[in-house]
């Protein structure tokens, strides 16, 4: 690689941010951009972002395929949400859609082309057993058969062990909180559910500030930043659009972030979305933090073949995610159990 060559992941981020014209790319640049976008599960997102741009014909054709496929996938994801509603509503169990399915149900900009994996829903902790039974009766079944994993989920996690529907082959994650029970931070799950709002097609989704809090928590407080570029793109678009319709949105976000103990995560997400995607954030959110550098490096750690580079940095973020998730003694026990079972 030449000294002056810009890496594919940076070109990809520039294209999303609108800092670089698609027409300025050389044909060979697209190889890496497409490879990185696929690795980040964001090819259809890029296809939407560059709809109507001046593209090489084969790229335009590939992007059209991606947009069409994402539309089908989104319809299937919303159908899955409807199936959950039909299983839970007769029992009087209310649930809130989370993540990709919620963005699609609410018709948000970040839903355009966004990959949706499992169906994620949030129920009140007091409803979790009944929700489990209702889903089992409606054709979902357990994925994990390992007794330790099952015990671990039930004792320490913020969700049931994953369930899969036996005929549709789709997974559902039923949460009663948005971070593990053992996490250093305990967001107010009751407030999340009771302050939820209705989407256009009648599903409950988190209110705007809570949705941004959850997005930041999922990206920065729970995981090891895998899929970080996608989560950050979600955060950027949702905060941009929420702020455009509600001038007091950033204040609300600050208030809810304090309520949930997520100020650090939310503020970092805002700074990173500014640094990577050129987000315009409110006054008071515009600071600098030296440690952001590591997060930026982790988000950019892909080579032009879409492979994760910097394995030590990746490992460090993996360890960090576990460190946040559980107290040290428990972490030691957990890793020991997992290691013995390898």
């Amino acid at each position: 690689m030449g000294r002056n060559k810009v890496s594919a992941v940076r070109i990809f981020v520039d294209l999303l941010a609108g800092r670089r014209e698609a027409s300025a790319l050389a044909p060979r640049d697209w190889d890496g951009v497409i490879g990185v976008a696929r690795s980040e599960a964001m090819l259809a997102t890029l296809a939407h972002r560059l709809e109507g741009a001046d593209l090489p014909p084969s790229v335009a054709a590939l992007f059209a395929d991606q947009r069409a496929a994402a539309a089908v996938a989104q319809q299937q994801a919303l159908w899955e949400a409807e199936m959950a509603r039909r299983a839970l509503a007769p029992q009087g169990i209310e649930f809130v859609l989370l993540k990709g399915t919620a963005y699609a149900a609410a018709g948000m900009a970040c839903a355009a082309g966004r990959q949706i994996g499992d169906l994620d829903i949030l129920v009140l902790a007091s409803d979790i057993r009944r929700a489990e039974n209702a889903l089992l009766n409606a054709g979902w079944e357990w994925v994990k058969s390992d007794p330790y994993d099952d015990f671990y989920y039930r004792e320490h996690m913020h969700e049931l062990p994953p369930l899969i529907h036996k005929s549709r082959d789709r997974m559902i994650d039923v949460h009663h909180a948005i971070l593990p029970r053992t996490h250093r931070i305990t967001p107010d799950a009751l407030a999340l559910v009771s302050d939820a709002v209705a989407s256009a097609d009648g599903f409950a989704v988190l209110n705007p500030a809570d949705m941004a809090c959850h997005c930041a928590a999922h990206m920065l407080a729970d995981g090891d930043l895998q899929g970080g570029l996608r989560n950050l793109w979600d955060f950027h678009l949702m905060t941009r659009d929420f702020a455009a319709t509600d001038p007091r949105f950033w204040e609300q976000l600050d208030r809810r972030a304090r309520l949930h103990g997520l100020q650090d995560a939310v503020q970092r997400a805002a700074r990173l979305s500014r640094d990577l995607y050129g987000a315009v954030v409110a006054a008071g959110w515009n600071g600098q933090e030296a440690s952001d550098r590591w997060f930026r490096q982790r988000l950019f750690a892909r080579d032009d073949w879409g492979r994760v580079t910097r394995p030590l940095l990746e490992q460090a973020f993996y360890i960090r995610s576990h460190w946040l998730r559980m107290p040290p003694m428990m972490l030691a026990q957990h890793l020991w159990t997992k290691w013995r079972k390898r």
Binding site: P27, W30, D31, I34, P56
Partner: peptide, 13 residues
Amino acid sequence: DEARPADATVCLF
């Protein structure tokens, strides 16, 4: 066609 961007990437590593 050297000018055609790749649709799919395979890595042998």
